[in-house]
Write a protein that binds this DNA or RNA. Structure first.
Lengths: 164, 164
DNA sequence: CTTTGAATGTCAACAAGACTGACTTAGTTT
DNA sequence: AAACTAAGTCAGTCTTGTTGACATTCAAAG
């Protein structure tokens, strides 16, 4: 069945697409399960995870940058950032060029948590990749990229280029 | 780079996995964006979408079944179900074999909304599949399946077999 | 140089939707 | 008759999103 399907895209029925949608739903649940467990033990949620992830990825990023990426209101993000700063996981430095801006950095403790969370997530992803096989991995990433909103995709691929 | 990566899984660095994680995050956002827009216009949320999806998929399913699949508490599901029944999108029938159970069905209006929501989602997914190419689709589904929690994966594949 | 307007971030209050825990009602099983 | 099960409800909490009002800072126009 998978064979016939990939031979010709016109054979993708609504029902097959519906199943792919469901797979996405279940897979995302698995994808977040491990970090969620770690986070709930320390009274954090996914919002904290997301903030930590993107501050790790782009140290010194401003609150406004983060807002654009996360797609939430600044008030919502601020609550999360405040607890992270209070708990000593994130450091907020006043901008030198523009003192209205706050530049965000992970402290050593913040980096440690980031590593713990992404380790858990990577372990599952690595296992899934191994079981699915090398060819599947490329296809997986290919489809994911095309499923993003165009502007987020630009942002995403921008980092890819930058990392080379 | 994608080539070298798929040649040997051992070359998957932590950083590449981290990027895959981020891709999953952005892609899921895109994946839910279209239904979210439709839902918010009618004062529903993702919770309603999920209930509608699984009742459509398994008409006559009981509340308990739904709880197991969705992984929420009955109080949480009940709130959603109540509004859907009140609004005439879902019908709840007392079980014939066991009259404690309530079997759930979509009304015509419910089916109409389901179709509207999944149409939006399918359109995006179909586009992503087309752009990524046939080979990518198989890999995509392969990886997703392996990323699920084992019990949900059993449930997921059970339907696959049943549909043949 | 001052005033005005825009950008950035913070505080407060509220809503949706998840959670736990205790309880009721109805039906089934032992 | 007693124990268990399915569903639903009530009350209270937490996370994470929302709006609205406000303080600070900067830049540009008068």
């Amino acid at each position: 069945m998978a064979q016939g399907m990939s031979d010709n895209l016109l054979f993708l029925t609504d029902e097959q697409l519906r199943r792919a949608i469901e797979a996405m739903f279940f897979a995302y649940r698995g994808f977040t399960a491990d970090p969620d467990r770690i986070l709930s033990e320390m009274d954090y949620g996914r919002a904290h995870h997301r903030a930590i992830h993107f501050i790790h990825r782009s140290p010194g990023t401003t609150v406004n940058n983060l807002l654009a990426i996360l797609g939430v209101t600044k008030q919502s993000l601020n609550r999360v950032l405040r607890t992270l700063v209070e708990d000593g996981l994130v450091q907020s430095r006043v901008g030198t060029r523009d003192r209205r801006e706050r530049h965000l950095y992970l402290t050593d403790a913040g980096e440690a948590l980031e590593r713990k969370l992404s380790d858990a997530q990577r372990t599952r992803m690595r296992a899934a990749f191994r079981e699915a096989g090398p060819a599947a991995v490329t296809g997986f990433r290919e489809v994911l990229e095309h499923m993003m909103d165009p502007e987020l995709r630009r942002y995403f691929t921008a980092v890819k280029e930058g990392e080379r």
